[in-house]
Nucleic acid binder design. Structure first.
Length: 928
RNA sequence: GGGCGAUUAGCUCAGGGGUAGAGCGCCACGUUGACAUCGUGGAGGUCGGUGGUUCGAAACCACCAUCGCCCACCA
């Protein structure tokens, strides 16, 4: 092995081998385990959120696979209707073409071509992350069989009356020219105005005032509403208004919807362009005036002067015209919510169109129950509340989109506008017994991308065929996803799964947090703070990083600031950390449900951890060449590390079971670094490097080194697959283990290594001994290389035994030159002191130790002890504590006080000696 | 307007009714044949504030502050 760990040399080699060997496919006959990947957009590239999520899913999959489960991580991609169509349309625009120039068929062909050539980069990036997805089952939401599943679901829902077509207000994106669902519309605060207009009463008896943020919509007003209990306006209800600019007579109506406290208490009602007004219109049977067209320009339904004007031009014109007529009362500054399409960013209009809807109530009810009854569990459980909140007030889902890329709606119309829904035109003719000469035209619309995503857990398994996969891997075990798509995706999968696959789609939903930058900001292209996971794996130069962060920037004025910030944070670019360090970082930060600030310090530290492991392995391998089957005797240190490993393994199992990858990572890290490397490796050296040590003892140490390392690699494999495989390929030979890959070896079990309390106590004593000596050495500035003589005072029989038994360890690891027991009546020489229970470790001072420094050191210890003692005594002096606290707590407190007192006594004695010593020294100095 | 979350060492974060933790950073010393991507020792926190429950609160409860997120039709 090389002296230092170099990730890039090894990672890609192993992945290629795993994939080629078919290791990712489910195998064996264990209990099935299944995770479906949240299908990334075909247009997408891997970002930090993916990398984080994929790390979690891969760690879980590898863990369960190693535990004997028939594990499937189902990969695939989403056709991403709007996003993909936008990408290809942009390309066309660059060629001076539009999609209408091409026509639908040719355009769709172009999209497929784009997908073949440049779609799905993310699949390669997933490989770099080490994702053990079963590529042989890769699926795309537009594949023929998945499309068939979509069509089938649509037809079944339609036949059952759960899909309907209706004309009502939808969120209309005037740039993309499509309807959007409520979820795809983001409400954003924007500065605007509130205009107060006077509307003259038709009988010439004055006017009333209305306030609006959208003056142009007054062209479509059907009424003015007041609150029924608003006595200011009771006399106006039932009278009419002369609508200015339009010349229409509209009524004044009373409706509970109006808030008398707001504005003037009079609301203009525009049923065709506002969701609330639409409802008011329905209640009062008001006419709808659709004054906009598909581009959100003023339509022919409005008076001639405004026709064809953009909505914002029309707004200015309306305000000016009303002002000219003296009808503008006042203009206030006002912040309002502006709805924008989440893809286009365009301001969305409530717009009257024909669309397809899913009647959601009957689907939502069982989906709510599934979570209420615990058939599906959210982790952390808190998120079920978010789920319920949304599900209880869920609205019908608008599923039609006026796009070309997507699953085309399986509905046909005849000349009279009758609708026929079936799997195909032929099926429709058969189903509805239509004559061949009836001309049918297919609906132009496609389905919301999320419609097919909702079927993902069973469509990928071959549904509606009752395939072996479906039977085995549905329901899935756990879904791993971000809270941002609980509504978009999780809820809809639950509804569709229950409806069509006969069961919940997964048993648990693990919700993880968002990856943010070091300042807690969301990573986004426009902020220029994006980190590319591949750059963390491979490293990147500053120049490349600057280029990536500023390329294609919309707001070019931010470029200098982004460059400056990037130069400041990454003056030398980003070094190469490797996929394992990145994965370990994600795992260590994966506390459930909480957002994560990505900290480069952490990944740096975990790369060092890789190096630590690497070098520990080098040491183990170095000492275990040509292992034979000679008899082995396990010494205390061997039994100790085995016991510690058993404990760690048990902890890791527990942490995986509760999805606490952070705690699992922490437990492994601590064991590896602070127990195996810091202690066991050091403790093994005296045995292995000694000429006197018995062959069986040496064999015991060798056996332990290689056994523990080998198990540790398996323990770590789910989080760090590459480095563990690389090392394991050597370790297995030393350990005499068969098997071609660590991936398919069993996950360690606690019982493989027994707990050993005696060994833990024994080595615990050795550690305390050595730590005591080290502390003296460190604080007294004694060279680490210098071996120290140690005197033991007040040793019990057990202390004597241990000191003898572990003399070699103390000598070598503690750098102790000699250990001598002071006789009971023997006067201790001046010495630096460490306490180990009743035992005192004395390091004679002669020529070694500065008396004043030792006194300061002991004084500090004494102060600390006294503070603790004071607190403990205070508690015991409190009757209410003694009477009310649990007896064991009181006992424990008494023991602490005794312990503090004993140690304080020892320290006081030592300090006294130092005092007298110093006096002597001073005396001598005076005399000379 | 509702709801949720966060606030612990300089930074990033665990923890959790009785003794405050890790990594990074900091200080000192150190080339002991696994590792300087390291070793050894050390410094550093009245756990956001106030009140309550309790023998005991950093932890539980209430309120407040600050920050963040989600949902919602006030023109």
């Amino acid at each position: 092995m090389e002296k230092t760990y170099r990730p890039l040399d090894i990672e890609q080699r192993h992945y290629a081998n795993w994939e080629a060997s078919g290791y990712f496919a489910p195998s064996g006959d264990g209990e099935p385990f299944c995770i479906v990947i949240p299908p990334p957009n075909v247009t997408g590239t891997l970002h930090m959120g993916h990398a984080f999520q994929d790390t979690i899913m891969d760690a879980l999959t590898r863990f369960h696979r190693m535990n004997g489960r028939r594990a499937l991580w189902q990969p695939g991609m989403d056709h991403a209707g709007i996003a993909t169509q936008m990408v290809v349309e942009r390309q066309l625009n660059a060629e001076g073409l539009s999609r209408t120039d091409l026509g639908r068929e040719e355009f769709v062909r172009r999209v497929w071509q784009w997908k073949q050539e440049s779609g799905g980069q993310i699949a390669q990036q997933l490989r770099r992350m080490g994702a053990s997805v079963d590529w042989s089952r890769d699926r795309f939401t537009m594949d023929d069989d998945l499309t068939a599943a979509v069509t089938r679901v649509f037809v079944d829902l339609y036949d059952e009356g759960l899909i309907y077509r209706g004309k009502r207000l939808v969120n209309w994106d005037p740039v993309l020219h499509t309807a959007l669902s409520d979820l795809e519309v983001l409400q954003e605060d924007e500065a605007g105005h509130l205009w107060h207009f006077r509307y003259p009463l038709a009988d010439g008896d004055g006017h009333l005032a209305v306030a609006t943020t959208r003056p142009e919509t007054m062209l479509g007003d059907s009424a003015v509403a007041v609150h029924p209990d608003d006595t200011r306006y009771t006399h106006l209800v039932g009278r009419e208004i002369d609508l200015p600019l339009v010349g229409r007579r509209i009524p004044v109506i009373a409706d509970e919807y109006v808030d008398p406290e707001f504005g003037t208490g009079c609301v203009k009602i525009t049923p065709a362009h506002d969701f609330n007004d639409y409802d008011v219109g329905l209640r009062h049977d008001l006419p709808l005036y659709n004054i906009l067209d598909d581009n959100a320009a003023i339509s022919d339904a409005a008076p001639t002067p405004y026709r064809g004007l953009d909505r914002y031009v029309a707004r200015d014109r309306v305000v000016a015209d009303l002002d000219a007529q003296g009808l503008l009362e006042k203009t206030e500054d006002y912040t309002r919510k502006v709805p924008r399409g989440d893809r286009s960013g365009a301001v969305v209009e409530p717009y009257l169109t024909n669309q397809w809807y899913v009647k959601i109530g009957p689907l939502a009810k069982p989906a709510i129950e599934a979570v209420e009854t615990g058939r599906i569990r959210f982790v952390p459980e808190n998120w079920s509340k978010t789920y319920f909140d949304w599900m209880h007030k869920i609205q019908d889902w608008c599923i039609s989109r006026q796009l070309w890329w997507g699953h085309r709606i399986p509905a046909w119309y005849d000349g009279s506008g009758n609708i026929y829904v079936a799997e195909s035109e032929a099926a429709a003719r058969a189903k509805y017994e239509l004559a061949d000469d009836v001309a049918l035209i297919r609906d132009e619309d496609v389905l919301d991308t999320w419609f097919s995503s909702a079927l993902w857990p069973f469509s990928t398994m071959g549904w509606p065929e009752q395939t072996e996969s479906l039977k085995t891997f549905y329901p899935g075990t756990v879904l791993v996803t971000g809270f941002d798509i609980i509504f978009f995706w999780v809820a809809r999968m639950i509804m569709m799964g229950l409806k069509f696959a006969g069961d919940v789609p997964f048993r648990e939903v693990y919700i993880h947090g968002l990856i943010r930058d070091q300042d807690g900001q969301k990573m986004s292209k426009s902020k220029g703070n994006v980190l590319d996971p591949l750059d963390l794996i491979d490293g990147v130069s500053l120049d490349t990083l600057l280029e990536k962060r500023t390329r294609g920037l919309m707001q070019t004025h931010l470029k200098p600031a982004i460059e400056a910030a990037t130069r400041k944070q990454f003056p030398n670019g980003i070094e190469e950390y490797g996929a394992d360090a990145l994965r370990f970082t994600f795992a260590a930060l994966a506390t459930t449900g909480r957002d994560i600030r990505f900290d480069l310090g952490r990944i740096e530290g975990y790369k060092n951890f890789c190096n630590k492991l690497w070098n520990a392995a080098r040491y183990v391998h170095m000492n275990t060449v040509n292992m034979d089957d000679a008899d082995a005797e396990f010494g205390a240190a061997d039994r100790w590390i085995r016991s510690r490993l058993a404990k760690t393994i048990a902890d890791v199992h527990g942490h995986f079971a509760t999805y606490r990858l952070d705690l699992a990572a922490q437990a492994i890290y601590d064991f590896t670094w602070h127990e195996f490397c810091d202690w066991y490796l050091e403790l093994s050296k005296p045995v292995l490097q000694s000429d006197e040590a018995l062959a069986a003892d040496k064999q015991g140490a060798r056996r332990t080194l290689v056994d523990v390392l080998e198990a540790l690699l398996r323990l770590l494999h789910p989080i760090m697959p590459f480095i563990t495989e690389e090392i394991w390929q050597q370790t297995r030979r030393h350990a005499g283990i068969a098997g071609e890959t660590i991936m398919l070896r069993p996950f360690p079990q606690s019982a493989d290594f027994g707990a050993d309390e005696d060994a833990e106590a024994d080595i615990g004593w050795v550690q305390q001994f050595i730590l005591g000596i080290r502390q003296i050495r460190g604080e007294m500035d004694i060279s680490p290389g210098r071996a120290l003589p140690v005197l033991l005072q007040g040793a019990s029989a057990a202390d004597r035994q241990r000191a003898d038994r572990h003399a070699t360890l103390l000598a070598r690891v503690g750098r102790v030159e000699s250990v001598r027991h002071l006789a009971d009546d023997e006067q201790a020489p001046p010495a630096a002191t460490a306490l180990l229970g009743d035992l005192r470790l004395l390091v004679p001072m002669q020529g070694l130790i500065d008396v004043a420094a030792e006194r300061t050191r002991l004084g500090r210890q004494r102060d600390r002890l006294q503070a603790d003692l004071g607190k403990a005594r205070g508690k015991l002096a409190n009757d209410r504590f003694v009477n009310n606290a649990p007896p064991d707590v009181v006992t424990q407190e008494r023991e602490r006080v005794a312990e503090f007192e004993r140690r304080l006594g020892q320290l006081a004695e030592q300090l006294e000696k130092l005092d007298s010593l110093e006096q002597t020294t001073t005396l001598q100095a005076d005399n000379s």
